[in-house]
């Protein structure tokens, strides 16, 4: 296993089953703190399953079974004393299709803090402003916070969902296919945002874009058919892949 000095998340022998189908097979990796880790792999490789497993969102399926451990700062998030809502607050997930709630821009961002008991209007104002600034959306929406969020452009919606996740002050941010369905300009803004966010947060991104993974990530985990094929610093994996399957994938020679 690649040595990571300060792992935020430690994944040990993680296997995920949907009924009889095994989506992840005994995955073990250390996700470094304060860095961006890109999870790459073909369709059905298990990228989204891995992300969901890191915040216990996979439990929303009726027939899912998870084995192994995921340690967040040394504590097993699947342990008997783990509080699932607290785990999800600390490890935020931004799904592939960003969907703001059918509420105002303000209410979307304030939704999470309200769930966790923040009622003071001034405090909420501060949180909304800070989160929108972090997501790079403040200047575009500051004069229309009460407008309906579903009227925003797809790129703005994606950033609003990031702001919504940041508002609960997570420690880890999982982003599934951050530029999915976005035009190149909006995708570039999201990438810039990821580069800024990784200064403050531990990021895990699932992406199908090698270029994007190369530009924004510090570490890369390559999955194939539910197995972890290779994990290491992005520069090493791209320059000197250890496994033939990794090399084939990143050079586009996959069948």
């Amino acid at each position: 296993m690649v040595l990571v000095r300060h792992p935020k998340l430690v994944v040990r022998n993680l296997s995920v089953y949907y009924g009889d189908f095994q989506a992840l097979s005994s995955i073990s990796l250390n996700i470094p703190s304060g860095a961006a880790t890109a999870v790459i792999g073909g369709s059905g490789a298990g990228k989204s399953s891995l992300l969901r497993s890191l915040c216990r969102m996979n439990e929303l399926w009726d027939n899912v079974r998870t084995e192994g451990q995921v340690l967040l700062d040394g504590h097993d998030i699947y342990g008997p004393d783990a509080d699932v809502t607290e785990v999800r607050r600390r490890v935020g997930l931004i799904a592939r299709h960003p969907s703001p709630f059918p509420k105002s821009i303000f209410e979307n961002v304030a939704y999470g803090p309200r769930l966790h008991g923040v009622r003071d209007r001034r405090e909420l104002d501060e949180i909304v402003k800070r989160s929108l600034k972090q997501a790079g959306l403040w200047n575009e929406v500051k004069g229309r916070l009460q407008e309906f969020a579903l009227n925003l452009s797809p790129g703005q919606k994606a950033r609003l969902c990031i702001a919504r996740a940041l508002a609960v002050q997570p420690e880890v941010l999982l982003i599934d296919d951050p530029a999915y369905n976005l035009d190149p300009v909006s995708a570039a803004k999201i990438e810039d945002l990821i580069l800024e966010l990784k200064q403050e947060y531990t990021l895990v991104l699932a992406t199908n874009s090698m270029q994007q993974a190369g530009r924004v990530s510090d570490y890369i985990a390559f999955l194939s058919e539910g197995f972890l094929v290779e994990f290491g610093p992005t520069s090493d994996v791209f320059a000197r892949p250890k496994d033939k399957r990794t090399e084939d994938y990143i050079t586009g020679r996959f069948s």
């Binding site: 929303l60 809502t85 607290e86 999800r88 607050r89 709630f101 769930l115 996740a165």
Partner: peptide, 12 residues
């Protein structure tokens, strides 16, 4: 997605 996103924010 509304359920998913609310639960992902730590909502019960």
């Amino acid at each position: 997605s509304f359920r998913r996103d609310s639960l992902a924010l730590g909502g019960s």
